[in-house]
Design a protein around this nucleic acid. Structure first.
Length: 866
RNA sequence: GCCGGGAUGGCGGAAUUGGUAGACGCAGCGGACUCAAAAUCCGCCGGUGGCGACACCAUGAGGGUUCGACUCCCUCUCCCGGCACCA
């Protein structure tokens, strides 16, 4: 054994040992409970970032912990390898996305290996390999057969200069990121997956996922957005025909307050009206500017223009004017809305802006309605009553909705309906670096699926995108093909799939990644569902919802025997860092990495200013945000690993904050982690002979000092085991530190004392081993504490070590801490009360008065209320 | 704008879920060792007042419930995540 802690040597040796013994190779074993521990696979962006280190360390801690608790653990890893950054890299450096991606994978795999994660690498997969994505294509064709996949138009961001579709992140302030041209909305044909068919189940099953964080379930439920309302029509006559304008509302009780209707710019009624009205046509054109992002639509100025078309109110027959509104979405609901300015905030402001009538139809006792300003209660859905509503006057919200829905139904103009906020999943991307959609367009046969036998449709790997559309469309060897039906020359579809398709089922493929003949085989039902899924909170909705949907489709196709893919979910917070920048009067804003910036403080440690180390001049702070390339606020874990080792990086990541919380980076704390590991090593070195000669079990009874040491060890172990259950690894790390503090201070001369130290070290190393496996592996074997640490039994606190005869209770007087009282552990309520009233502080403060009340909390405190 | 979450010393965070606020660590200060420095070790470390015992203030801000509130309720401020083509 070496005296000095040398992380590089320790880690190399441990990793070689695990490699040699195939320690993390997982196999099905019906005799043991299985534990499938999965961290979200990374996008191979180039190198690991701190978020990855955090994510995979959390997963590894859980995997190793469960292994020691006797579970058959599977922890696989792969690559979410398709996506936009590869195309951006291609544009910047002229490298084909395939080469860039595979190079990144090779580098990041080395980095992951150096962190010593207990991963079964034999199951590795990359979504950009044809062996993987052929099953995307295969399942897409099954969905097409079942009508779950279908074609319709959808809106995209269009850059009119580059003549290309832009991703939302490529639209900056409504302009294309490369051209600066104002972005337009375009309707293009796309393929959709009917996730809305599963809306009811996706919502209902959320209640049966107790292992999911409440906040994620709430977010998903709100996203799915089930609402009960009424779909009804405003009849009208146009061009000599009887027509109906359909709308949906959740506030049918306010229907008597409708003063106008609004339709989307793409609505047929708008198109018809614009035919005779050039100003309206121009307005509709204007509505097409801007991005398709909901956040933009929600915050933009609400604008509108009348169409001149009048429709009839379905209940009163009153004439209602139809407007075109830029805030009405064609793809959502009917593309038309009724407007009740008195009871909808958006309609209220719109009506005020354009001088449209506002008619109050709901009243709340004690409130007075005024046209001057919007008040929150106008939209109240609880306790209002109908007014100015004819025969509905006096009805409550629910009664009014019931009556109105019935009347609409009687007239054949509508009725109750359930709607969903959730929209079908558009999977077409006009991009190169993705999974090809396996379809062929034939002039005579139409759109024809590629036959299963011809799968996969392989993506050529040598294209280099240049920002002007999809290079696949220019590849004649890809596009030109024959129609599978009539054998005539035909064109291959060049759109690729959304990368969320790739990540919607990779976790199932890990169970049987070696099966070239089937998407999944029977092993999937051994390993899945995933027992513990770990990933960033930013995936709380989309990725997790799509995966749940995809799983249900696979279940309905008989491919898997489960409907929910992830039994338990841990959503880690993001890793943030401060952003520093300078904005010159002219020219581009410059970002400086926090490593280049020095924080100046006063003698109390309060921050005065931030300066650039290079020139000593101040820089501005842009707050803290997620680490990103564009803001240059990332911290490279590689440097940390090289300087202090993987165990220090892992320990610090776990110690810095609980997993679910956002983590603000600070490199100051790293030193403390490194120092602690060095102390563990040094202590083990000092104790190597003591441990070797110590008895294998602790002789009882122990001398007092040794009893106290042992109690500290077991008490902290109990606390740590409780914290493990809460995924609170920062306090597990604290408990380990407290154990070491106790052991260093412990007596070690006699045989009993040596046995306590030996037991303490054995507990400490096992407790710490999921977090710092290399260090613990080395010390466990050096001290010969028994077999392979990986499979050592997880320690449990001993009842006799925790027991104590006397305990200390907090003494409060009127809720304020005023000292403590010592009582026997078995003391009764009366004993405690007597002891408390006899305490010096109690006598002094009470000064002879009789207390009103004495509150005793067993094992904790006693509160005297004077 | 809408949905979800967060705020505790100079800093990261703890508080057994309504019961000692600040565990553990970082930074800082003082000391030991050293020719010196680094490393290491020991001590102090929320604020105000007091020689001191101690008292008062303090968990983003304001109110409330309770013997007792970081924890529960109401109002507000700021920050973070998501908003369907970033992953």
């Amino acid at each position: 054994m070496q005296e000095r802690y040398d992380p590089a040597a320790v880690e190399r040796a441990a990793q070689e040992h695990w490699e040699r013994t195939s320690a993390f190779r997982a196999a099905e074993d019906p005799g043991r409970p299985k534990y499938y521990c999965l961290s979200m696979f990374p996008y191979p962006s180039g190198k690991l970032h701190m978020g990855h280190v955090r994510n995979y360390t959390i997963g590894d801690v859980l995997a190793r912990h469960h292994r020691m608790r006797g579970f058959n653990v599977l922890q696989p890893m792969g690559w979410d390898a398709f996506g936009l950054p590869a195309e951006n890299a291609a544009m910047a450096h002229g490298v084909p996305p395939a080469k860039w991606t595979w190079d990144n994978i090779a580098y990041m795999k080395r980095q992951l290996k150096s962190l010593g994660f207990a991963i079964d690498w034999s199951r590795e997969l990359a979504t950009c390999s044809p062996e993987y994505y052929r099953w995307n294509q295969w399942l897409f064709l099954r969905m097409l057969e079942k009508g779950i996949a279908y074609k319709k138009t959808g809106a995209v961001n269009w850059d009119p200069v580059d003549k290309t579709v832009l991703a939302n992140e490529q639209v900056i302030d409504g302009r294309g990121w490369r051209t600066g041209a104002p972005v337009e909305k375009r309707e293009i044909p796309m393929y959709y997956l009917a996730i809305t068919r599963y809306a009811e189940e996706l919502l209902a099953e959320l209640d049966h996922l107790p292992g999911w964080p409440e906040r994620v379930r709430t977010m998903q439920a709100n996203w799915i957005g089930k609402s009960h309302g009424v779909r009804f029509a405003f009849p009208f006559e146009l061009d000599g025909r009887q027509e109906k304008l359909w709308v949906f509302t959740t506030r049918a009780d306010t229907i008597m307050g409708v003063t106008f209707c609004a339709v989307a710019a793409e609505h047929p009624l708008a198109t018809r009206a614009a035919r005779d009205d050039p100003r309206l046509a121009a307005f509709i054109e204007e509505c097409k500017h801007g991005s398709v992002m909901e956040a933009d639509l929600a915050t933009m100025e609400k604008k509108g223009m009348p169409t001149g078309i009048l429709v009839r109110h379905p209940l009163t027959g009153e004439r209602i004017e139809v407007w075109v509104g830029n805030y009405v979405l064609m793809g959502y609901g009917e593309g038309a809305v009724m407007a009740v300015p008195a009871h909808d905030e958006r309609d209220f402001h719109f009506a005020k802006k354009y001088g449209l009538p506002i008619r109050q139809v709901i009243d709340l006792p004690g409130k007075s309605f005024s046209l001057d300003a919007w008040q929150e209660w106008y939209a109240d859905k609880q306790s209002g009553r109908c007014v100015h509503s004819g025969r509905y006057d006096g009805l409550g919200i629910e009664e009014a909705m019931e009556a109105i829905a019935a009347d609409l139904e009687a007239k054949g103009l509508g009725g109750r309906q359930v709607t969903w906020r959730l929209r079908d999943w558009g999977i077409s991307r006009q991009r190169y670096w993705g999974c090809p959609i396996p379809l062929i367009h034939c002039e005579t046969c139409g759109t024809v699926p590629v036959p299963d036998a011809e799968l996969p449709v392989v993506l050529p790997e040598d294209c280099v995108p240049d920002g002007s559309g999809n290079p696949l469309a220019r590849r004649r060897d890809f596009v030109e093909c024959r129609c599978p039906k009539c054998k005539a020359p035909a064109r291959r579809e060049t759109d690729t799939m959304d990368t969320f398709v790739d990540s919607s089922w990779y976790y199932s493929r890990y169970a049987c990644a070696d099966n070239a003949g089937r998407m999944v085989d029977e092993r999937v039902n051994y390993w899945l569902p995933v027992d513990q899924y770990i990933g960033g909170i930013e995936h709380a909705i989309l990725h997790l919802l799509y995966s749940r949907f995809w799983t249900k489709v696979m279940r309905d196709l008989g491919l898997v025997g489960f409907g929910e893919p992830f039994s338990r979910l841990l959503t880690q917070g993001m890793v943030l860092n401060e952003v520093f920048f300078r904005k010159p009067a002219s020219g581009r804003i410059a970002y400086y990495n926090p490593a280049e910036v020095e924080i100046r403080r006063d003698e109390k440690g309060n921050r005065i200013q931030a300066v650039l180390k290079a020139d000593g001049a101040p820089v501005d702070s842009g707050g803290v945000t997620t680490m990103s390339k564009s803001k240059n606020n990332g911290v490279d874990p590689q440097a940390l690993i090289e300087r202090c080792g993987a165990d220090t990086a892992r320990f610090f990541m776990m110690f810095a904050s609980p997993p679910e919380q956002t983590l603000e980076w600070s490199d100051a704390g790293v030193e403390g982690a490194y120092r602690f590991l060095k102390r563990v090593w040094a202590f083990a070195w000092t104790m190597r002979e003591t441990v070797a000669s110590a008895p294998g079990s602790v002789p009882l009874p122990l001398p007092d000092a040794a009893t106290a040491t042992r109690r500290t060890i077991h008490f902290n172990l109990k606390q740590a085991n409780y914290d493990f259950g809460k995924f609170q690894f920062n306090t597990v790390a604290s408990a380990a530190m407290k154990m070491l503090n106790a052991l260093e201070a412990a007596p070690r001369s006699g045989a009993a004392e040596a046995a306590v130290v030996r037991e303490g070290l054995s507990i400490l190393l096992r407790l710490l081993s999921p977090i710092t496996p290399h260090l613990c592996h080395a010390l466990w074997s050096e001290l010969a504490l028994g077999g392979e640490l990986l499979d050592a039994p997880w320690p449990e606190p001993a009842a006799e070590a925790l027991a104590r005869e006397r305990i200390e209770l907090v003494l409060q007087i009127n809720g304020k801490m005023r000292g403590s009282v010592q009582v026997a552990a078995s003391a009764s309520r009366e004993d405690i009360e007597r002891a408390a009233l006899a305490a010096e502080a109690a006598c002094r403060i009470l000064a002879g008065r009789t207390p009103k009340k004495v509150v005793v909390v067993p094992g904790r405190l006693v509160n005297i209320v004077p």
